[in-house]
Amino acid sequence: MDWHQLWEIVSTPDNVPIVALLFLVPFFAWLAWQQARANDQLIAQLEADPKLAKTAHRKAFPWKPGWPKEIQTWPYLMRVEFLAAIIVTVILIVWSITLNAPLEEPANPNLTMNPAKAPWYFLGLQEMLVYFDPWMAGVVFPTLIIVGLMAIPYIDTNPLGAGYYTINQRKHAIGAFCFGFFVLWITMIFIGTFIRGPSWMWFWPGQTWDPTRQIYETNRDLPDIFGITSMNGKMIFGAFAMALYFAVAGAFIHWLMTRTEFNRKIQKRMSLIQYLTVQFFLTTMLLLPIKFIIRRPPFRIKYIWITPWFNI
């Protein structure tokens, strides 16, 4: 166990945000979960008692009759903002006094950095380069992430859970978002920062980053396993494999979407275009962990579909 190596990665000033994220994200997830649980208990109570539902305040936050529903912005909100600004300033100044922004040698096109890493927030995309070709990982997926995020309000037909934390009323939406945010985004950044060493090789935490390390890995494509050698054969086989994947993944998502009475109700509110958009984004999202698993040992499969123009 090379503790020094681990410390070197963790203590690199530019990695501080990622280390901070490892604490901040669970903390805020816990804060949200706590409030969601309180609201879900209240919802269950009100669903069971329709009379109470008509008269209840319907908030987990305390409220007494006679309290005004609204309060003055000055001072009640602005003092919070002012306090937040002061705290952030103090944090920033302390952070800036204790840690220096990195400055490497002058730019030198003849001396390649090893590993050459993107800024930490793009390491997820760089890590995706292992699983997909650059045009997918670097261009198509980022575009899909942006478009997919923008599409969320227009494909989520569940009217419940607007303006309060809840899990029970929005299991699928929250599940999908957390899958994207925690698994696809934060975990990929974590791998890109802590696991990927020289030559972008996989080093477990605590393993020494040895720049001279050699790994003998035979990368295979899916058609190779089935003994398909001709280009046309690979093309047709890959197209079938992808079609099969989308059919199975689509069926799985459809099953999820129609599992309970409530889910079916939400699904019925969707137009065809909304339904297909949800299917497209979710099945594409699932492609990443699947390619991640088949790319790692013992499978070591690089491409599923090979054509003369692009590979997936």
């Binding site: 530019d14 050459a116 261009v139």
Partner: peptide
């Protein structure tokens, strides 16, 4: 902007991805 190795190679990686735009 600091024009050091870190920025140079990060931008090289980033723009090489752009080179692969369909």
């Amino acid at each position: 902007l600091p024009d050091d190795q870190l920025g140079f190679w990060a931008v090289t990686v980033g723009t090489t991805m752009a080179q692969n735009t369909p």
